[in-house]
Every structure is written in C-alpha cells, then in structure tokens.
Amino acid sequence: MIKLVFFARLRETLGCDALTLDLDKPATAAEVIERLKVREPHWRQALDDTRLLMALNQQMIKPDAEVRPGDELALFPPVTGG
C-alpha cells in the first residue's frame, strides 16, 4: 500500500486530494502512475501532463525513482510560490 497525494490545479481537476493504492513490491513512480490511470481511466488526461512534478516521501524525484510499500508519493503542477 502507498499513499498518493495531489495538490493545486491537479487536486481540483481530479476532485481528490489523497488516496491509497495497492503496492506489494517496489515499482518506479512512472509505473505507479500507469497503474493509477488503469484504476481511474477518467484521470488519464490530467495525469498525462508532462509538466507534473513528483515528490517521494517529501523529496522531489524523477519518474524513474523507486517507490516502496508504505511510501507517500505526491503529484503536483509546477510550483508558483514566492
């Protein structure tokens, strides 16, 4: 099991701020997103946005990073603070 969290425009588009996904062995972040698209086909377009950023356990990562059971994977648009 892993926790997925979404922020800002992506959170609004999906209508969801967090969910859990079954994961019994390590997979890359990109694979996790593919699995999410299968589970929630209507999210495909929003999740295909190549500008989306990812953080694993609160650290920015690239899509090939390894996600393990118990991790928190965050997906969000480019940041606009400051």
Partner: peptide, 8 residues
Amino acid sequence: LKTTAPFW
C-alpha cells in the same frame, strides 16, 4: 524557492 518549494 520559486521553482522547488511546494507552494501554489
């Protein structure tokens, strides 16, 4: 901060 801190 403007490109890496998670604020929107």
